[in-house]
Computed example of a mutant assay.
Amino acid sequence: MELSLMDLHQIKEIAIRAGALLMEIYDSSYEVKTKEDQSPVTKADLTSNAFIIKELKKLYPNILILSEETKDDLNRLRHELLFIIDPLDGTKEFIKHNGNFTVNIAFVHRQRSILGVVHAPALKKTYYALKGLGAYEDNEDALNRCISVTDKLTDLNLVGSASHRSLEDEKLVEENALQIKTYKQLGSALKGCMVASGEADVYYRFGKTGEWDTAAMQIIVEEAGGIFREINGKPMIYNRFNPFNEKGFFAVNRKENIWTVPSVKI
């Protein structure tokens, strides 16, 4: 299946409409429940999830969907094509009411992410990319703004997780302090999009993540000229039997800023 700009536009609109549903709940009262993995889930997660799945099925009835909020259908392993969604990436940030949450929709072909949309409704920003056609941002000031990573090797702006700070993070910052100008912690796929747009230069994440956390932002980073790999330098692949990446990952502007495996071939 060959995707077109029309596909990208339609999928972006689904993400934006899902974001509007999130914003309806954002300022209301809602119950916060705890899932088996001890992560929070709200009415917003489930409402957005149901909407995205319904709309994708209208357009692509034969393509399976892997979602953080839906039971995994392992029949997906028999297919080359797959949608991977996170209907509310950054639930903790949503609950904290700091705006740093997103809707993530990715399309995967033969285990590679080839289309991604990351929509941040509270910030009124949308990042999107289609393989071979570049990466773009919509915001309040401009539409279809082509984005690209920086070429900086010093005075780097590092971003990291607000909710998953680890000893590995602290060690990485300490060992590369001379190259780092600022270190900002925030939630969701926004961090990868900040690298893609040049707002940040380096993003490292240690520990467990799901395919839905990375698939959309990966293609955005790569189409913006950045490098996105597992923390050990291996290519990130999707539609695996185990949808969790136990190793972590990085998104960087230049290969010289790969600090965990500096000798990796790109």
Rank of each mutant, 00 (worst) to 15 (best):
S4T: 14
M6K: 14
Q10Y: 11
I11E: 01
E13N: 07
A20K: 15
L21C: 03
L22E: 10
E24R: 08
E24N: 12
I25K: 04
S29V: 10
E31I: 14
V32K: 00
K33P: 02
T34M: 15
E36M: 10
D37H: 11
Q38W: 11
S39T: 14
S39I: 08
S39P: 00
V41C: 11
K43M: 12
S48D: 08
A50L: 11
I53W: 03
I53G: 07
K54E: 15
P61G: 08
I63C: 05
E69A: 05
T70S: 14
R78P: 00
R78Q: 14
L82P: 00
I84E: 01
I85N: 02
D86N: 04
D86R: 02
P87D: 12
K92T: 06
E93R: 01
N98I: 03
N100F: 15
V108I: 15
R110D: 12
S113V: 06
V118R: 03
H119T: 06
H119V: 03
H119Y: 12
P121A: 11
L123M: 11
Y127N: 05
Y128K: 06
Y128A: 05
Y128C: 05
A129Y: 00
L133E: 13
N139L: 09
N144M: 10
N144V: 07
D151P: 02
T154Q: 13
N157T: 15
L158G: 05
L158Q: 06
L158W: 14
A162T: 12
S163W: 01
H164D: 15
H164G: 07
R165C: 08
E168H: 12
E168I: 07
D169E: 06
D169N: 05
E170L: 12
L172P: 00
V173H: 10
E175Y: 12
E175I: 09
L178R: 13
I180L: 11
S188H: 05
A189P: 00
A189F: 03
V195L: 06
V195A: 07
A200F: 06
A200H: 02
D201N: 10
D201P: 01
R205Q: 14
R205S: 13
F206K: 02
A216H: 01
I227N: 04
R229K: 15
I231S: 03
N232E: 10
N232K: 06
K234M: 13
R240C: 04
N242D: 15
K247R: 14
F249K: 03
N253L: 08
R254M: 15
R254Y: 13
R254F: 09
K255F: 09
T260E: 13
P262Y: 09
V264D: 11
I266F: 14
